[in-house]
Each structure stands twice: as structure tokens, then as C-alpha cells.
């Protein structure tokens, strides 16, 4: 399995750490109720098909990546950095 890191190019799966569904990106606000947190932390669509999940280029550029892929075929459709590209260059 290979992922194309937007910064580093195509790399073997062993360079990456996996962290599950991109649900983790949608952190509830402080004060949201227990159900919101339960949904955020635990409940998952867990699709058999296209999914969006999070990978960390641990042995590369340390980017967190959002990967669009198929959980049945393992086909990779897209790899994007989680952090939006810096706007207007360096501050």
C-alpha cells in the first residue's frame, strides 16, 4: 500500500501512522453535550466503500493527511494535507 504525500510524493505505507476516520477533525465545541462527544470520539459510519481517514506522515514530513480511499478495494483516491495551506506565505 502506498500513499502519495502532497509534500513528499509516493511513499510506502510503513512511513505512515494511521488514526482512523476523519470524524476526529470535527471536534465539538466546549460545552457540547455528552452525545456530541460520544459521536465525535466513538460512533462511526465505518463504511464498506469510500472513506475519509487520517494518516500521519510519521517518518516523513509530519503532515497529517486526509486520505480518500476505498475500504473494500484499498484503492486510494486522494491524499490531502489536513492543515490548510498557509495563506499568503509566511507570516
Amino acid at each position: 500500500m502506498r500513499l502519495t504525500c502532497p509534500l513528499c510524493g509516493p511513499r510506502d505505507r510503513r512511513e505512515f501512522y494511521y488514526y482512523g476516520s476523519d470524524d476526529y477533525l470535527n471536534r465539538p465545541a466546549e460545552g457540547d453535550g455528552p452525545q456530541a462527544w460520544d459521536a465525535y470520539l466513538h460512533l462511526r459510519d465505518n463504511p464498506a466503500g469510500i472513506t475519509h481517514d487520517l494518516w500521519y506522515h510519521d517518518m516523513g514530513c509530519s503532515s497529517w493527511l486526509r486520505v480518500t480511499r476505498n475500504t473494500v478495494t484499498h484503492e486510494i483516491h486522494a491524499v490531502d494535507a489536513v492543515a490548510a495551506p498557509a495563506k499568503g506565505g509566511a507570516k
Partner: peptide
């Protein structure tokens, strides 16, 4: 685990 969600 292989460590990625999968049904394969």
C-alpha cells in the same frame, strides 16, 4: 493489526 480500516 495492519492498522487501517478495511473490509478486504
Amino acid at each position: 493489526l495492519d492498522f487501517y480500516a478495511s473490509y478486504a
